[in-house]
Structure formats: structure tokens, C-alpha cells
Nucleic acid binder design. Structure first.
Length: 377
RNA sequence: GGGAGGGUAGCGAAGAGGCUAAACGCGGCAGACUGUAAAUCUGCUACCUACUGGUUUCGGCAGUUCGAAUCUGCCCCCUCCCA
């Protein structure tokens, strides 16, 4: 491909046993180490967290959402503000999702055609037409470092015929998006769909690779499928993706999915899980899951996680965090979000070290045992 | 002293003869959440329980009725208005 000057993946080390990769992702807004967990900031904010806090937590790239930002405040407003980075005061890399996930999550309010997707927007019912070209145009206006092809996130389960039809259309959309894409300071990723069918995943991956994207995502996962299906879908896709390009599994944030994906050669992943769980009082800790609202923490004056280095764990007790949660105090949600996001970022930081030392498998086993829960988070 | 309205599960509040162990809200307890329509949603919340049932309830007592939180009488409390 005509390699982008300002975007490429530099693989530094591959774990000898698993094939897990350590590297540097170069982007127009700076370098990120991979594997990397990317917090989600759908509406130009990672809910409750400031950019300064995200930097302190070690966040590399964060996400924004094309569908949501195009409704409010509107792509033109963001463009006038000088782009998403300036608008939200985030100077690191930003990845924007294309709206493809909303084809799945807002399925009751949309109609798919070859041309694109007609949404009835969830706020006031206004018609909103998304096509590959529209999604690219919006993402170019937002000015993210990494844009996503407009796809259909296929529900699970879905039958073969549906997956085939949808995946072929997603491929045509990928081509249209690629043709429409102009910004040279923005990398456009293709997204592998195909449901849980090996031949469709293979076909989709191979066709996308022919189009020569600077990076590839694996989509249509973590939408209710069982864990073994998830890993199958990742494996079906990943073996057809080029080694020198970043691989991004969309929408995963539980410990087992994250570590299991890294072991299979995934470089990037994002998830709302840590921030949403935090707002709902559920915390990932090195001793397993904690529901901070539980009565048993009422007089527990120990930190949430004694092995965590985050601001929350450094200065606050479970009793205090429970109190804030029970009283529905905003500060509690902030502290818990700080913890969960830092927890995942730190887990991946440690994974990077383990990869470089060729002991990722042991690291993974150790962590999964530590978190105790077979089911993960 | 006269008049009026009330007392229902932890709290607030429906219900006005059987379909009511009793709506709904709050509070309490527990659970879920994975490219964010999510600071949201679900379950439980008289008592016992092998979860399948069983036991005792709607201020108190006594009645009417096949059957009462709902009707009658008396009693005990509370609120408001006039003196």
C-alpha cells in the first residue's frame, strides 16, 4: 500500500509462545504502545473523566462516535471548533466508530438498504441517512486519527444467508468508503464481519486485505455470543490479516476477552465496560469483581484494590466509595471510573511487559487465576 | 365544647364486599451490563419454607355475611376548621 507517512504499526516484539505482539502505533497525534486498551468517549467525553485524568491513567487512544456526534453537536460544529481534538481538549489520538455499531444497537429505528442505513434518530425521530460516504465525510470533519469503515454489526446469532448477504454488503460499503476517503492525516480501517462462519470471516478478511487498509478491525463480536464463539470469530479473521498492520477487536473490555485476544495477536481494543460498570457500582479488582453498593462494605475502610495505583485506590476507602454511590454523588462515579479505566490500562501495560519478556502465557494464566472468575467481567 | 376528615406492609399512597399478601412510588437488599438511546435495567422486599407451598395481616375489639382492608357498632389515636 501507499504507506501513510504519519500512521503505521511498528512491531517491536512477538511473544515466542503465543504470538502476542508488542509494538508502537504511530499516529498523527502521537505514538501509542500496543496492545492498547482504548476508553470510549462516545459524545466527545469519556464519561466523568477529564483528558488530564485520562493521560494520568496512561490512556493512549480514545474513541468518539460518528452517529452520536453527528446528531449532537453536529459534525460541522466540531469542524468549526477546529476538530474533535480541539473541541474536547484531547491532544492524543482519537479513533471514531463509523455508526456501524448503531446499525446493531439501534436496530428498531433503522432500515438497511444497499445504499446505506436510514435511521430514525433516537432523540427526536428525525430521519438520518448514513452511507459509507456520509460516515466518511463526518469522520473527516471530526478529524479523528483513525476512522472506521461503515459496516453492519451483525447480531448474534444470525443465519448463514443473512451473514453472507450482510458481509458482502459491508465489503461493498468498505470499498465505497475507501474511495470516498480523502484525508491523508487519517487512517481508515476495514472491518471484518462474517458472523460466526469461518468461510465468511475468511472471505471478508481476504477481500478487505485486497483493498489494502492501513489497519483492520474485527467486528460483530461481544454482542451476546458465548465466549468460545467469540474466540473462534477472532481466530477465523485474524489468520488472514497482514502481520504488519494493526488488528483491532471492537468492543471488548472484560479481562478474559482482552487477554485472550492479545494472545491471539490483537493489538487494540475498546470498550464501554469499565466506565459503564463503574457508573453502575461494579468494579474490576485484582481480587475479582466488587459491587461497591453491597452492604458488606459499609464499614470497610480498606482501599478498593490494594494492588492498584490509581487515585481512587490511593486515597479512598470502600466505605467512602459505597457512601458516595448510595447517595448518588457524582464524585463517586468519577472515582470508580478512574479505578476501572486505570485497572484495565494497567493490566494491558503489564501484558506489554510480559510479551517483551516472552512470558505472556504465564502472565495471562496468572491474571485469570487472580481474578478468579471463569466468566470474567 | 361544636364541626369535618383520617388511621393500609420501613415510609408515602391506591384499594370501598370475593379476581388482594394487598397497585404504584420511595427507601432497603441483590444481580446484570462488552465498537454507550445505559449515572441504566432486572429481581426480591409481612412471616416460615425443601422456592413448592404454608401461616398471620390493612388502629383495637365485637358483629353482619358463604366470604370483610372494604359494611355495622363501640373504643383508641391523628389532622384541620369554628369556639
Amino acid at each position: 500500500m501507499t504507506a501513510m507517512k504519519n500512521f503505521w504499526l511498528e512491531i517491536k516484539h512477538v511473544d515466542k509462545k503465543t504470538g502476542a505482539r508488542y509494538g508502537i502505533l504511530h499516529t498523527p497525534h502521537g505514538d501509542c504502545e500496543v496492545p492498547m486498551f482504548m476508553p470510549v468517549g462516545t459524545l466527545a467525553t469519556v464519561k466523568t473523566l477529564s483528558p488530564e485524568e485520562l493521560h494520568q491513567m496512561g490512556a493512549g487512544t480514545i474513541l468518539g462516535n460518528t452517529y452520536h456526534l453527528s446528531i449532537r453537536p453536529g459534525a460541522d460544529v466540531v469542524a468549526k471548533a477546529g476538530g474533535l481534538h480541539k473541541f474536547m481538549n484531547w491532544d492524543g489520538p482519537i479513533l471514531t466508530d463509523s455508526g456501524g455499531f448503531q446499525v446493531f444497537s439501534l436496530a428498531e429505528n433503522r432500515k438497511i438498504s444497499e445504499d446505506g442505513v436510514e435511521f430514525k434518530n433516537h432523540l427526536n425521530g428525525d430521519r438520518l441517512f448514513f452511507s459509507p460516504e456520509v460516515s466518511i465525510d463526518i469522520q473527516e470533519k471530526l478529524g479523528s486519527d483513525i476512522a472506521m469503515s461503515f459496516d453492519e454489526c451483525i447480531p448474534w446469532p444470525a443465519d448463514y444467508e443473512y451473514c453472507k448477504k450482510s458481509t458482502e454488503r459491508t465489503l461493498r460499503w468498505a470499498k465505497r468508503g475507501l474511495d470516498a476517503h480523502k484525508r491523508e492525516d487519517q487512517a481508515l480501517f476495514g472491518i471484518v464481519q462474517g458472523g460466526d462462519f469461518e468461510d465468511l470471516r475468511k472471505m471478508c478478511a481476504e477481500e478487505l486485505v485486497k483493498m489494502d487498509f492501513p489497519g483492520y478491525s474485527i467486528g460483530g463480536t461481544s454482542i451476546g455470543e458465548p465466549k468460545d464463539k467469540f474466540f473462534e470469530m477472532v481466530e477465523y479473521a485474524i489468520k488472514y490479516l497482514p502481520e504488519d498492520k494493526p488488528r483491532y477487536v471492537m468492543g471488548i473490555g472484560s479481562i478474559d476477552y482482552v487477554l485472550g485476544s492479545i494472545a491471539r495477536g490483537v493489538d487494540m481494543f475498546d470498550c464501554v465496560l469499565p466506565t459503564r460498570l463503574a457508573r453502575h457500582g461494579a468494579l474490576m479488582t485484582s481480587h475479582g469483581r466488587v459491587n461497591i453498593k453491597n452492604e458488606k462494605y459499609k464499614e470497610d475502610f480498606t482501599p478498593l484494590d490494594d494492588k492498584c495505583d490509581c487515585y481512587c485506590c490511593k486515597f479512598y476507602t470502600k466505605a467512602y466509595l459505597r457512601h458516595l454511590y448510595v447517595c448518588d454523588e457524582t464524585f463517586g462515579k468519577r472515582l470508580l471510573s478512574i479505578h476501572n479505566v486505570r485497572f484495565l490500562i494497567k493490566l494491558v501495560e503489564e501484558a506489554r511487559v510480559a510479551i517483551q519478556e516472552d512470558r505472556f502465557e504465564e502472565f495471562m494464566d496468572e491474571k485469570l487465576a487472580e481474578f478468579g472468575d471463569e466468566r470474567g467481567f
